[in-house]
């Protein structure tokens, strides 16, 4: 099957094999399965570290949908077996030697320290969305200046009032969700909502031992707003959101 690879245009890269890096873990791990462009994954070790890698035909490859899914899948499987520093999609080195000389060797201590810090923790992703009709009904019920205006087609002022009420409601509820969950986490990254009816978008770095408590809190939050808010709760994930800018 075609794996979405195009030959490199640089002559000396045509014959060489480049190395794709998924992340870094501790040495001595055995990883199986395939990854980007269906290549078999393995490790490149140096000191206390092991880079999770697979060969790719060149430095310049064009990734496809399945490659993106493969990257996440490899990390997820590695994470299920131990601590891992997830790399962003698309990190390619000139070869296995370069993985050592340009990554593992010069950054050994930083990576090892980060790996230590991430030991025993996981990322939990939390999103919440308003159900349109339900939240609008609440807004109408709670705001007489809105309910009194209903029934006029093309009423921009009415729409503006609704938008303002929704923004205020979202801010208050998002703060409530963060307040409930943050005490259970070591760290959190809260992002701005991206769509009109998105209520909350955040990632929490949680000790494995705290996941059960986090689950319980999530259940409580979701039950409380049942019928108006739907929660999407994903994890435990490799700590993608908590390794950014750790190394510079």
């Amino acid at each position: 099957m075609t794996a979405g690879v195009v030959p490199s245009r640089t002559p000396n890269a045509v014959t060489s094999t480049a190395t794709y890096v998924y992340g870094v873990t501790g040495r001595g791990r055995t990883l199986r399965g395939s990854g980007v462009v269906d290549a078999r994954i393995g490790t490149v070790e140096h000191g206390a570290l092991a880079a999770i890698v697979s060969p790719v035909p060149s430095l310049h490859l064009r990734a496809k949908r399945r490659d993106i899914l493969a990257h996440q899948d490899v990390l997820q499987r590695a994470f299920a077996a131990g601590t891992v520093i997830p790399f962003r999609f698309g990190t390619v080195f000139a070869g296995e030697d370069a993985v050592v000389s340009e990554l593992l060797e010069p950054r050994h201590d930083d990576l090892a320290a980060l790996l230590d810090r991430l030991d025993g923790v996981a990322e939990l992703s939390v999103r919440a969305y308003y159900l349109e009709d339900a939240v609008l009904r609440e807004i109408v019920q709670d705001n007489s200046h809105i309910s009194r205006r209903l029934g006029r087609a093309g009423d921009v002022a009415l729409g503006e009032s609704v938008a303002r009420a929704l923004a205020a409601k979202r801010a208050a509820e998002a703060a409530g969700i963060e307040r409930a969950l943050r005490p259970l986490a070591d760290d959190a990254v809260i992002e701005a909502p991206r769509t009109e009816y998105e209520l909350f978008r955040g990632a929490f770095l949680v000790q494995m031992t705290e996941i059960e408590a986090f689950d319980a809190e999530m259940n409580a939050l979701a039950r409380e707003r049942h019928g108006t808010v739907v929660f999407k709760y994903v994890g435990p994930l490799p700590p993608h959101s908590f390794v950014d800018a750790e190394l510079n």
Binding site: V21, R62, I68, F87, R88, F89, T91, V92, L237, D244
Partner: peptide, 25 residues
């Protein structure tokens, strides 16, 4: 979309080694 959000937007970046072009997605 969720996977893209996770691995294209987040994760450790090592200097200028990101080389892969993402197309058709």
């Amino acid at each position: 979309a969720d996977v893209i959000d996770l691995i294209l937007d987040k994760g450790l970046v090592i200097d200028a080694y990101v080389r892969v072009a993402v197309i058709g997605i």
